[in-house]
Design a protein around this nucleic acid. Structure first.
Length: 435
RNA sequence: GCGGUAUUGGUGAAGUGGUUAACACAUCGGUUUGUGGAUCCGACACGCGUGGGUUCGAUUCCCACAUACCGCCCCA
């Protein structure tokens, strides 16, 4: 019986993992600039943490949760997204306390799980990088988060980005709009798709998001959320737009944009890219918004929050599609060639000495002939080979060869153990740059 | 959850109801035996996703299952 990885999961193999590492390190550096600190929360939580916060009617909860009962018969779920767990941790660990300067700004990166049909850029286990900022209601923070998302994607070398924003307003605005929408849609009830019929009374905003052609036709003339924002909400949104402009960040307002999770209010946004790698037309690569009330919902004090999530798999697909080159630090400084059994201990000593000195060094472990060892050194793109044979063993010397030029010199073994750098500068600096 | 397509060695792949499953790349070995990217020679599928069935006989036909990809749904 051969084992296969679980459906919708992926093995990230060494070559690929290097790219992931590059992306993650890039993100860490940027987050540091924005003063966001890492937080790590469990990959599974009580089912309720997600179901309550995401909304009972959301697709995530109704059909995509990777949930299970543990041996203590607790209803658990692998996290389908990052925010709920972070908020839970924020509340449980009282990060809202006065000793924590506000806003409290955190980021995370890790696996998320959704039970659904895999497709390109969509897996059951996928990875997200996300940020959350708590404790400020000011539009400036909304804009910082949005700007950081854009900044991040630009750091990854992506182009053709499109920022879409919308406002869902505060609770009062949202309630008013919700009623207006129901009033508008009710007369069309029979024409709506089945999905939308269900959504109409549970979460009418989701109808706006329907991909069904007939639904879209109906929705076209529906009232706009933007007409139902009360003064405060309108002011908030205006400020966000104004600040984006002052940072020269282009954006498009999409009044029909609704996020899949119920906890959002006020500013919501999506950063999209037009790439065939993820299907036709613009697809979302990064999305987020404000979620005032979520902290309270999870048992904390009244404390606003805002954040975004970014899909790693999608990001990697896009970067590949756009031909972004990943800087890879994969240089083998020296390959130590041993000829004859008696040299084996010495070659091992040399390799270890080089490593202790900070060089990347390797040797043969398959007892192969010199020719094969050189072939390997060549294939691994070794900068230098150090050859030890019977005669070198006797003379306490080694042959150091620069692979690129083929130049080979004999040097005392003691020099190699002392400082390999000296040998390089002494014999090979004239025509080669080492990078 | 629904529909479609696919599944041959490390990789890319050809192929047929019936003796030894092409070819290429990669890998390994050799080319007179302590030195690398070329040439040449040679080796390399517990057998064709898994399990059943049809058949004298299946990798090739049928069924189920698994997985991947695409579309729907939805989303990162």
């Amino acid at each position: 019986m051969r084992y296969q990885r679980p459906k919708g999961t992926a093995d990230i193999l060494p070559g690929e993992a290097q790219k992931w590492n590059y992306v993650e390190e890039t993100a860490r550096m940027l987050f540091d600039d924005y003063r966001y600190q890492e937080i790590r929360t469990p990959m599974f939580e009580n089912f309720d943490v997600f179901s309550r916060t995401s909304g009972d009617t959301s697709d995530v909860v109704t059909k995509e949760m990777y949930d299970f009962n543990d041996k203590g018969d607790r209803h658990m779920s692998l996290r389908p997204e990052g925010t709920a767990g972070v908020v839970r941790a924020f509340v449980e660990n009282k990060l809202y306390g006065p000793e924590h300067p506000r806003p409290v700004k955190v980021f995370y990166m890790g696996s998320m799980f959704r039970y659904e049909r895999p497709q390109s850029g969509r897996q059951r286990e996928f990875h997200q990088i996300g940020v959350e900022a708590f404790g400020s209601n000011e539009p400036e923070l909304d804009v910082e988060v949005i700007a950081m998302g854009m900044d991040l994607l630009k750091h990854f070398g992506l182009s053709g980005l499109r920022l879409e924003i919308n406002s869902l307003g505060d609770q009062a605005s949202r309630d008013a709009y919700r009623q207006a929408l129901i009033d508008y849609l009710d007369p069309h009830f029979d024409e709506l798709s089945d999905d939308s019929k269900v959504r109409l009374h549970k979460n009418p905003l989701r109808v706006l998001d329907s991909k069904d052609k007939r639904d879209q036709e109906i929705v076209k003339d529906a009232p706009s959320i933007l007409d139902y924002l009360n003064a405060d909400s309108q002011k908030h949104f205006d400020k966000v737009k104004h600040l984006l402009e002052s940072l020269n960040i282009p954006y498009v307002v999409d009044p029909d944009m609704v996020r899949g999770l119920d906890y959002y209010n006020h500013t919501i946004f999506e950063i999209m890219v037009d790439s065939k790698a993820l299907g036709e037309g613009y697809t979302t690569i990064c999305a987020g918004g404000r979620y005032n009330g979520l902290v309270e919902q999870l048992g904390g004090p009244e404390m606003p929050g805002i954040g975004f999530g970014l899909g790693m798999e999608r990001l990697m697909l896009l970067m590949e599609a756009q031909g972004v080159k990943f800087p890879v630090l994969d240089q083998l400084d020296a390959y130590v060639v041993g000829i004859g059994d008696s040299t084996s201990a010495l070659t091992l000593q040399i390799v270890q000495a080089l490593r202790a000195d900070g060089f990347a060094a390797d040797r043969d472990y398959l007892d192969r002939k010199p020719k094969a060892q050189f072939k390997t050194a060549n294939k691994l793109n070794a900068q230098y080979t150090i050859t030890i044979g019977e005669s070198e063993l006797a003379n306490k010397t080694a042959n150091v060869k620069q692979m690129r030029t083929g130049t080979e010199v004999s040097v005392p073994l003691a020099d190699i153990f002392k400082d390999f750098d000296d040998i390089i500068t002494k014999y090979f600096t004239d025509d080669e740059e080492i990078d």
